[in-house]
Structure formats: C-alpha cells, structure tokens
Amino acid sequence: MAQTRVLALVGSLRAAAVTRQLAETAVAVSPDEVEVTVYEGLADVPFYNEDLDGETVPAAAVALRDAAADSDAFLLVTPEYNGTLSAVLKNAIDWLSRPYGVGALSGKPVAIVGQSPSKNAGKWALEDATKVVGIAGGKVVEGGSLTVGETFGKFGEAHAKEHAETAEQIAAVVTALADAKAAVVSA
C-alpha cells in the first residue's frame, strides 16, 4: 500500500485541549503506511469572506489550502461547542470548500472525531460536521466517525493516547481513512 498522507484539523485552539490530544493520538497510533500531520495555523486563518477570496487570498488561507491539496485524506477532530462543531473547524472547512466543486476537500476521504466531557460524547458536533463536509464535497468514510464522551473522567490528567480503548478506536479510524484512500486510488 502506498503512503497515505492524512491532514488532521483540530477544532480547538487551546494547546492542552483533549481535541488536540486525540489528533496527537492519531499520529502516535497510525500504521507505518499512514502519515498523520496535525495542522498548525488554524488560529491565523481569517473567517471566510468571499471578498478576501480573490486575487490576494490571505497567506494563512493559502497555507491551509496548500497543506490540504498535498493530503490524501482528512481527520477532523472537533469539540462540541454549544451543541455543534467549533467555529475554527467550520471556518477551515469553508476555506477548503472553495472554489466551489473543486476545493481541496472535494472527493477526498474524511474521518470525523467529536468529543465532549458530557455523556452526549460530541454526537451533535459529529452530525453537523458530517453534514458540512458532505456539502463541501468531502467523502465521510464508513467506519471513519467516532465520538468520545466523558473525557474529563476518562482521561483525567493523562494524555488521551494513554487510554487504551480510545487509542484503539482512533487507530481504527485512521485505518478506515487509509482503506478509503486505497479504494479511491484503485477505482
């Protein structure tokens, strides 16, 4: 199997966020044939504005689009904020959905992980992210969705990758992404 390059977009800007830890877990548990890169720089991407998306696209948006274009698949990790996905992640999807029909997400496999300290486990964020990705042209892969709930009690002071069940689940999501990319290549 050829190397699969996965770009992980983290929907929380906080350095110690559980969301970031889940993306870092994907890096740690990915198989040898998969390279997961956690994108740095979403905080610098301005809110999508069609007036900015012309001849002089902001450098941070260009960098995001370039990183996305160089990727085979995407791992989106979002906290659940007020019952939906984070604005940071939604904004990244908005930039990657343009130009309409041929944006960097178009036709590429996408896995989504939602998380929350509640028992709801980020299910609403996952549902909304799935909808947005589909409209943006990405292909949410079967077996590529995961919700992680009750994160405060589950992880405590430990890093998410130290929680064996969560690490296994994240590994399965990454494998589903690699399999989906392989299926696209062989089709």
Results as ranks from 00 to 15, higher is better:
Asn49His: 08
Glu50Arg: 14
Asp51Pro: 09
Asp53Arg: 11
Gly54Met: 02
Gly54Asp: 13
Glu55Ile: 04
Glu55Met: 06
Thr56Gly: 05
Thr56Arg: 06
Val57Cys: 02
Pro58His: 03
Ala59Asn: 01
Ala59Cys: 00
Ala60Pro: 05
Ala60Tyr: 10
Ala60His: 04
Ala61His: 05
Ala63Leu: 09
Arg65Pro: 04
Ala68Lys: 11
Ala68Asn: 03
Ala69Val: 11
Asp70Phe: 01
Asp70Ala: 15
Ser71His: 05
Asp72Glu: 08
Asp72Gly: 00
Ala73Trp: 04
Leu75His: 05
Leu76Trp: 08
Leu76Thr: 08
Val77Trp: 07
Thr78Glu: 00
Thr78Phe: 00
Thr78Pro: 05
Thr78Asp: 08
Pro79Ile: 05
Glu80Ser: 03
Tyr81His: 13
Tyr81Glu: 02
Asn82Arg: 08
Ser86Ile: 08
Ala87Asp: 11
Leu89Ile: 14
Leu89Thr: 12
Leu89Val: 13
Leu89Asp: 03
Lys90Met: 11
Lys90Asn: 09
Asn91Lys: 09
Ala92His: 07
Ile93Arg: 02
Ile93Tyr: 03
Asp94Gly: 08
Leu96Met: 15
Leu96His: 06
Arg98Ala: 13
Gly101Asp: 10
Gly101Trp: 01
Gly101Lys: 09
Val102Ala: 11
Gly103Arg: 10
Gly103Val: 12
Leu105Cys: 09
Ser106Arg: 15
Ser106Glu: 15
Ser106Val: 13
Gly107His: 10
Lys108Ile: 10
Lys108His: 12
Pro109Ile: 06
Pro109Met: 05
Val110Gln: 00
Val110Glu: 03
Val113Gln: 01
Gln115Arg: 10
Ser116Phe: 07
Ser116Lys: 08
Pro117Met: 03
Lys119His: 04
Asn120Phe: 06
Ala121Cys: 08
Gly122Gln: 00
Trp124Gly: 08
Trp124Gln: 13
Leu126Ile: 10
Leu126Thr: 06
Leu126Lys: 04
Asp128Pro: 02
Thr130Leu: 07
Lys131Cys: 06
Lys131Asp: 01
Val132Glu: 09
Gly134Glu: 11
Gly134Lys: 07
Gly137Lys: 11
Gly138Glu: 13
Gly138Phe: 02
Lys139Cys: 10
Lys139Met: 14
Val141Lys: 03
Glu142Pro: 01
Ser145Ile: 11
Ser145Glu: 13
Thr147Ser: 08
Thr151Cys: 11
Thr151Ile: 07
Thr151Met: 08
Gly153Ser: 09
Gly156Ile: 10
Gly156Asn: 12
Gly156Trp: 11
Glu157Asp: 15
His159Asn: 01
Ala160Arg: 06
His163Ser: 00
Ala164Met: 02
Glu165Asn: 07
Glu165Met: 04
Glu165Tyr: 02
Thr166Ser: 14
Thr166Gly: 02
Thr166Met: 06
Ala167Trp: 14
Glu168Lys: 15
Glu168Tyr: 00
Ile170Thr: 02
Ile170Asn: 00
Ile170Ala: 00
Ala171Ser: 14
Ala172Arg: 12
Val173Tyr: 10
Val174Asp: 10
Thr175Ser: 14
Ala176His: 07
Leu177Lys: 03
Leu177Ile: 04
Asp179Ser: 04
Ala180Ser: 14
Ala180Thr: 14
Lys181Gly: 00
Lys181Cys: 06
Ala182Cys: 03
Val184Glu: 15
Val185Pro: 01
